[in-house]
Amino acid sequence: MKLLLAPMDAITHQAFRNLVGRFGGCDEYFNEMINASSLLNDGPWEKFYLFEGPEPQKLVWQLTDKNGSKMAEAARILAEKNGIGIDLNMGCSAPQIAKTGAGIAWMTKPLSETCDMVRKVKSALENAAKDGFKAKRLSVKLRLGDESYTEEKLHNFCAMLIEEGVQMITLHARTQKQKHSRPSNWQAVENLALRFPEIPVVLNGDVKDSVSFETAQKTAPHTQGIMIATAAAQKPWIFAELKNLIPAETSNCNEMQGLFDAEQLALDFIDDVEKFQPEVFWKTRLQRFFAFYCLNFSFGHYFQSQMLNSADNNDARKRLHEYFEKCPDDKIFKLKNC
C-alpha cells in the first residue's frame, strides 16, 4: 500500500515537503499544481514551483489549465526534469478554477475535447522519452464528477483515460459540489479499482489517522495507494505514524524515538519558506501552514489566531516562542505508533 502526499495549493511546495521528509517521507510527493500557461509564459514565480526536493525520485508534477495544447507543451517541459510522473488535475472544484475550464471542468467538457487533451499530453511524454529523457508516468486526479454523477458515467470516463494512456487514477470520491462535511465515498473507489485492475487506483479523502486509514483499507482493499491531503497539512508526520500499520514497513520516527520539538520544527519551516518561496508568497504560505499546524496543540484556536495575525516572518517567530513559553507541555510532541 503506497502513501502519497496530495497536491495542495500554497502548501505542498518544497518547504512543506521538507517537513514531511524529516519524518521519513512518503512514497510519492505531489507538488502544488502548476498552471501550464504561466509556465509557458515564464511567469515571475514559476521557478519556485519547480524545486524538486527533498526526494526528486518520488516527485509528481501536477498540471492544470483550460487549454489542452498548453497542457501538452508544459508536460514536455516537466518531462525533462526529475520526478516520476505528470498528473493532470481533473478534480479541483474551486469555482475560480472550474469556471475557467480547468480542474473538474475537464470531466464536464465534451468527452472528445478531454480525450484530445490527454492524447496530446501522452504524446508529449512519449516524445520526451524518445529523446532520451526518463519516461514519466501519466496519471489523473479526479472527483466523481458533477451532480449528475453515476458510476457508469465515471467508469466510462476512466475507460477513456486508460485507453489514451493514463497509468494511474486517484479518486477523491466526492462530486463537484459536495463539501468535506459529507463523507467521501470509499466504496466508489473500491468499485473503480475492481473495474480497472490493470492500473493502480488511489483513494483520496477523509483519511486522517490510524482508525480512518485502517477503515479505508478494509472498505477499498483493491486500491493500491492512499493519498492524504488536509491531515498531512496539519500533521506532516502522519506518514511516519501510518507506515507502522503497514506490514513489512518500517518508520523513521527520528533519533528521539518519536519525540520532536514542535517549536523548532515550525521555525525550520519558516526558514525554508524564506529559502524556497518568493518574498511576496511568504505571508500566505505561513498562514496556510499555521491554519492547520496550530490545531495540534492545547490552545489550538488561540495559537492559530496569533500566528495568522503575524505581521511578518520575524513576528511569527516571536509569537511561536511566546506560545511555547506559555504552554511548555506542548513543546515536545510524541508521535503515535512510533
Rank of each mutant, 00 (worst) to 15 (best):
L161P: 01
I162M: 05
E163Q: 13
E164H: 09
V166N: 02
Q167Y: 01
M168I: 12
M168N: 09
I169Y: 02
L171W: 09
H172E: 08
A173D: 06
A173I: 09
T175V: 06
K179I: 11
K179D: 09
H180D: 12
S181D: 12
S181E: 13
P183Q: 09
S184Q: 03
W186L: 05
W186E: 05
A188I: 07
N191Q: 15
N191S: 14
L194W: 02
F196K: 02
P197L: 10
E198H: 05
E198P: 00
I199M: 05
P200H: 08
V202R: 00
L203I: 08
N204I: 07
G205I: 10
D206W: 06
K208Y: 03
S212G: 04
F213V: 07
F213H: 08
A216P: 06
K218A: 15
P221S: 06
P221G: 08
P221M: 08
H222I: 01
G225M: 09
T230Y: 05
Q234K: 15
L245Y: 05
L245Q: 12
I246S: 04
A248R: 13
E249Q: 14
E249I: 00
N254L: 10
M256F: 11
G258S: 02
G258M: 01
A262P: 03
E263S: 01
E263P: 00
Q264S: 10
Q264A: 11
L265G: 00
L267F: 12
D271F: 07
T284V: 13
L286W: 12
F290H: 04
A291D: 09
F292V: 01
F292I: 01
Y293H: 01
S298A: 12
F299I: 06
G300R: 07
G300E: 06
G300V: 08
H301T: 13
S305W: 08
